[in-house]
Computed example of a mutant assay.
Amino acid sequence: MITIDGSEGEGGGQMVRNSCALSLVTGEPFRITSIRAKRSKPGLMRQHVTAVEAAAAISGSECTGLAVGSPELTFRPGRTVPGEYHFAVGTAGSTGLVLQTVLLPLALANGPSRLVLEGGTHNMLAPPFEFIERTFLPIINRMGPQVSARLVRHGFFPRGGGRIEVDITPAPLAPLDCTTRGQALGVSATALFSALPGEIAERMLARTRRDLADWPEDAFRLHQVPADQGPGIILLLEARYANITEIVSAFGQLGVTAERLAKTSAARIQGYADASAFAGPYLADQLVLPFVLASGGAFTTVKPSQHLLTAIDIARTFTGRRIEISRESGDHLISVG
């Protein structure tokens, strides 16, 4: 059995999610101790429990220590069974993070699956739905499996109540070379808001226009969501290329002005535009799993984050694959062999 110290590296829920996914594919049982030990609220959170429950539900896996606040988890994988599944995270726990846990095992199963996930679709510390749909899933689809996701209802932090539906047609994962972005195709800035004064969203966009002065005027838009799906606000900055779409997001927070959020987000998307790496920091974390399960491939990214380094360590532990990090023309090249 693989034993993982959950306090090492990034030390967050990513270790639990990636371990579950890799365990289901490789058949290796694992035990994680000291889960999220360095966080202000250590142990498993509700969305982590739901993610593990989802992994167990699609496979008949056995778990011990699966409870909110638990510092230790043991997971003995069963066999992934395709089908129709419905998982509710509760409040605004991230539906996207639950999807990341079960997606690849189902994408490598022996039949199609359909998922209904309820909870948060736009919440802090997790990729928003648009990132999953437009940035991450297109790469999975290029590797072989075909996955489509639909946003049925928005779920903003802290209320949640969102719903996404995902259809998965499995296929073997083929190695992919993701080292060039390709031709620039366009940009957009969207202030998505619900049950809040429109003036907040307008201020957010006004600051974004100021900081991204070279973006065309028609790139900026307001999108009001029905009030019963809020309250909440998020700024989505999108840069589209032939081979990749990068999305930078900023979620409204109490005590943080719209202008400050916009300024930070604009700096991040401008930093990506000024660089040449294929994957931004958040996408890089998520590419490790499909690339190691494809037994090959490469992608370039910006300076590796602790999340990325931890994802690489977990992938090496479960698969024994060679994953190398090197510098290439100012970028960092992650190669799997």
Rank of each mutant, 00 (worst) to 15 (best):
168 I>A: 00
169 T>C: 13
173 L>G: 03
180 T>D: 13
181 R>E: 01
182 G>R: 06
183 Q>P: 13
185 L>A: 05
185 L>I: 02
186 G>C: 04
187 V>H: 12
188 S>Q: 09
188 S>P: 01
192 L>V: 15
192 L>F: 12
196 L>K: 06
197 P>V: 02
201 A>Y: 02
203 R>D: 12
205 L>P: 02
206 A>Q: 11
209 R>W: 01
209 R>S: 05
212 L>A: 08
213 A>L: 05
213 A>Y: 13
216 P>D: 03
216 P>L: 01
219 A>E: 02
219 A>F: 05
221 R>S: 14
223 H>F: 13
225 V>Y: 08
227 A>Y: 05
227 A>M: 07
227 A>H: 13
228 D>G: 02
231 P>S: 03
233 I>V: 14
234 I>G: 06
234 I>Y: 09
235 L>Q: 01
236 L>A: 07
237 L>A: 00
239 A>W: 04
240 R>N: 07
244 I>H: 11
245 T>Y: 09
247 I>A: 00
249 S>A: 12
249 S>K: 00
250 A>M: 10
253 Q>C: 10
257 T>E: 05
266 A>Y: 08
269 I>R: 00
270 Q>T: 15
271 G>H: 09
271 G>N: 05
273 A>I: 14
274 D>V: 09
274 D>Y: 10
275 A>W: 07
278 F>P: 04
280 G>V: 01
